[in-house]
Design a protein around this nucleic acid. Structure first.
Lengths: 232, 232
DNA sequence: ACCTGAACACCGTTCAAGT
DNA sequence: ACCTGAACACCGTTCAAGT
């Protein structure tokens, strides 16, 4: 059999199988040959639908970005930038946490991935709409990304080994309980994320009062922006 | 020739060559065979010094962690946790920015890497010494890691493509200038890092007043800790 | 257009053999 | 102890051939 009358493959089928493989066994488990085998075709068939393996993984990453809820940026009062950012961060993190193995691919930046770009666009637009100067809105999009992808990638607690003898008190005087972290992995990571997110939003609130005036307060929908020096 | 009277290889030589290869050509360029060729030996020789390729890359990552300055945690007044955290974050980011390709390996967590553990130990010890409750000190270590590694990994600006046609205004109404980001890559990333770091420290300062009282104010060097609920 | 098998230039790792 | 070549079981990708 050379070409079937109905195509065996589609971009969506390939992305679906690749996602499942990434979730189940990690990035390293994805080879074009294994992926093709799962799909019941031979390895080179994939190249009729994607230029190379990287493009397949990019599509998997973009499918995760597509899961991020952006509705809070449309619905809410533009003055509620803080609440919107908070809810978006939770949704973003939840999407990444559900597919941790693809995060390194996603963290490289939006590039040309449509869903990733929609996320960047929505955040930037909402912050500008809330009265942030564009340069600051760009920075907010970037720094939130740093924090969220960093938290999804690192799994601080999971990075420690569950082995009491691994952390000699003579070498690391304060890490006596570190081996316990592996157990409490989820709690520690979620606690750190919550604490960090709250700190970030509190800190940005302080900066907001220096950089901008909110928009739309009295039916005036143009941003009244006051530029302030970068360091107060 | 089978075994030379003086060893051709050492762990340090291997790590040095691997670091250079990672910096020059990225993670994917490091294969055991290429690395061995650079070192003038055959591929399997490396296995006399490291168990596998992953261990070599872990050692490269740890060499980067070893560059992080930790002196601010020893020298400073324990009450200056904020200044110490700030300076440490800059030093950490600088170390990662100098070797961006190894960041994905480093971001997986300290594991058993000695230098990475020294970093975690120093931060945790300093925060507890400054009066933070241990659970909060753990979270601070984690969230700072999230932010710093996320910023070193993502290069938000570098993630955009320098191509005016890539970001159609119909699809992404707010990304009209996005293709310019590639040019200003360093500025945007550094600006976002500074803004985020300041926000994080401002936010933590607010939380500090709820969680703890500073230590050593009147020659009393035990922490007086008041536990507060996680959400105020 | 879409799939195939064969082929090319690679991989990481094991292992017996050498000194 | 430390290096070697041979070998095994893989890779990603190209390409001519088939329908």
């Amino acid at each position: 059999m050379a070409r079937p009358r109905k195509p065996l493959l589609s971009r969506d089928r390939i992305v679906g199988a690749a996602s499942a493989l990434v979730d189940a066994e990690g990035l390293d488990a994805v080879s074009t040959r294994r992926l093709a085998a799962v799909l019941g075709v031979s390895g080179p068939s994939l190249y009729n639908h994607f230029r190379n393996k990287e493009e397949i993984l990019d599509a998997v990453a973009d499918a995760v970005s597509a899961q991020v809820d952006l509705s809070m940026f449309e619905e809410s009062d533009p003055r509620d930038w803080r609440a919107a950012l908070h809810d978006w961060a939770l949704s973003y993190r939840a999407a990444l946490a559900a597919h941790p193995h693809i995060v390194p691919v996603l963290a490289r930046g939006p590039g040309r991935r449509p869903a990733g770009l929609r996320v960047a666009d929505a955040v930037f637009g909402a912050m500008v709409g809330a009265g942030w100067p564009p340069a600051q809105a760009t920075r907010i999009g970037a720094l939130m990304r740093y924090f969220i992808t960093g938290s999804a990638l690192g799994s601080f607690a999971g990075g420690f080994v569950d082995d009491e003898t691994a952390y000699d008190p003579a070498d690391y005087p304060h890490l006596g309980q570190a081996h316990l972290l592996a157990d409490h992995r989820r709690q520690v990571d979620e606690g750190a994320f919550e604490t960090g997110l709250r700190a970030l939003l509190d800190g940005l609130t302080i900066q907001y009062e220096q950089y901008a005036r909110p928009v739309g307060g009295d039916g005036d929908d143009t941003a009244t922006v006051r530029l302030a020096p970068n360091r107060p």
